[in-house]
Design a protein around this nucleic acid. Structure first.
Length: 241
DNA sequence: AATGTTTACAACCGCAGTTCG
DNA sequence: GCGAACTGCGGTTGTAAACAT
């Protein structure tokens, strides 16, 4: 028996995504939303597996991604959260709107881990977490923080409130047009989308409407926009496969 | 300038959890 | 209740850019 692989790898492309592929995937999702990743590559005309498409969208193309370097405040909070949650990157990422679990994991492994090693084995006076998962059960039995509850109580993390991005609405207007390379400025909405030529389905001006709304409210979340992605009306799945 | 090494990050893999028929 | 399909997560690998020699 056994599981069917997520995709048969024959004839499927792997490795770095091209601009054209990004464009196809982005356009498709912006037009149709996300319902079934397995069908996305076929419908979008991509030679990728659904899993790969999902990863690309989640970690790179999603318009609500923040990108850019981590601030010291963010690093502080990451260290704090990691000491409590361990390698549960998705839980940690929930505290960093606009950051992906992959991004946080990478940042931890490449920079913070090194920093902490330089500072010594126990920089916080506490046992480094759960790395092997042994603390996890004990944690969940009692001392663990309830992430969902914490988020509900404190939806805007202290990092967000501490960060000063130094961007006014007008600043942001220009940043939306900035290229991906500008991401080090600490703010870059629609990092990849800005470089893309959009089809008829969603004009750049309508995208910017969301950006401006987001910016002026001080929130990184653009719920209306994201919600709009979740509708798959008009797609007929019956003829697939 | 050429080559080797390191760093940072994108992408893949495999497993676990969830959903659905 | 069961198994297949699907999604999400965390660990690991690949690779391009940056840096050192």
């Amino acid at each position: 028996m056994g599981r069917r692989p997520c995709c048969d790898k024959v004839g499927l492309k792997r490795g770095t995504w091209s601009v054209e592929e990004d464009q196809k995937l982005t356009n498709f999702i912006l037009c149709n939303g996300i319902k079934c990743w397995r069908h996305v590559p076929k419908l979008a005309g991509l030679l990728r597996c659904g899993k790969s498409c999902r990863l690309r969208w989640m970690n790179y193309l999603r318009p609500d991604l923040k990108r850019g370097a981590f601030s010291e405040a963010e690093e502080d909070q990451l260290v704090e959260l990691h000491s409590r949650l361990g390698n549960r990157w998705s839980k940690i990422a929930a505290f960093f709107p606009g950051r992906t679990d992959n991004e946080i994991k990478n940042h931890w492994n490449t920079r913070i881990k090194k920093k902490l090693n330089l500072l010594g084995p126990d920089p916080q006076g506490g046992e480094p977490p759960i790395e092997q998962g042994e603390n996890r059960d004990a944690e969940e039995g009692g001392g663990d923080i309830d992430v969902d509850q914490k988020l509900a109580e404190n939806p805007v993390s202290k990092v967000e409130t501490r960060l000063d991005h130094g961007h006014s609405c007008s600043d942001h207007n220009t940043s939306t047009k900035a290229s991906r390379e500008d991401s080090d400025a600490g703010w870059s909405t629609f990092p990849s989308l800005t470089d893309l030529q959009f089809d008829s389905c969603l004009s750049r001006s309508s995208m910017e409407k969301y950006v401006l709304q987001e910016d002026c409210s001080g929130s990184y979340w653009i719920d209306d926009y994201v919600d709009s992605l979740l509708s798959w009306d008009g797609i007929n799945f019956n003829n697939l496969e």
